[in-house]
Amino acid sequence: MAFTGKYEFEADENYDAFVQKIGLSSEKVEMGRNCKIVTEVVQNGNDFTWTQHFPGGRTTTNSFTVGSEADMETFGGKKFKATVKMEDGKLVADFPNYRHTAEISGGKLVEISTSSGVVYKRTSKKIA
C-alpha cells in the first residue's frame, strides 16, 4: 500500500484515556486535543519520511527504513530507537510505552496506538 501523501486530521477516538495512560503532561494533552495535525508521508520503496505539522509551527519528522533500526521521536518529544516493520500492509512500530500502527484504508490514513489495553485511533483525510 502506498502511503505517500499529505493528510489532515479528521477524527480521533479515546484520546484522553490514551494520553493519560502514556503519561503526557497536561500541557501536551491540551496541545494535542482536537489538534488539526497535518501528516506528510514520503515513501520511496521501504524508505519513509513521516512529518507531522502542528498548529503554531511545531514539526516532528521521523525518517526510517522498514526493517532497520532508526532514531524516532514520540508524541511527547522523547527520542528513542525503533525498528519499523510492515505487517499485512500496516506499518508497525513499538514506541517506549505504546505500539503504533498506520495504514491506508479507504484513502485515509488510519493510525492506532495501544498502551496496556487502551486504544487510541486517529483518522486523517488525504488533502494532497
Rank of each mutant, 00 (worst) to 15 (best):
K81P: 03
V42Q: 15
F9Y: 15
N62W: 04
A82F: 00
R99A: 08
T39M: 02
I104M: 05
K108D: 06
T51E: 04
I127T: 14
K85M: 12
K125V: 04
N44H: 13
T59N: 13
D71Y: 03
N14E: 08
A102T: 01
E27W: 13
L24F: 10
C35Y: 09
S63W: 06
D12R: 06
I112Q: 02
Q43D: 06
L91R: 00
M86S: 12
T61I: 05
T114S: 10
D88M: 05
E40F: 04
S115W: 04
D88A: 15
V29S: 14
G67P: 03
S68R: 15
D16E: 15
F75T: 11
V118S: 09
Q20T: 13
P96A: 03
M31D: 12
N46M: 11
T39D: 09
F18Y: 08
T83G: 01
M1F: 11
V38E: 10
G23P: 11
G67N: 03
R58M: 13
E87M: 07
N14S: 09
E87W: 03
S26H: 11
G23L: 07
G45R: 04
T101A: 02
E40P: 03
H53Q: 12
V119Y: 01
T65S: 11
M86H: 01
Q52A: 02
R33E: 12
G76V: 02
T65Q: 08
E30T: 14
P55C: 03
T83S: 01
S26E: 14
V84G: 01
K121W: 08
G67H: 04
T61Y: 06
F3M: 04
T51V: 02
S26Y: 11
K125M: 05
L91S: 01
E8I: 11
V19T: 12
F48Q: 03
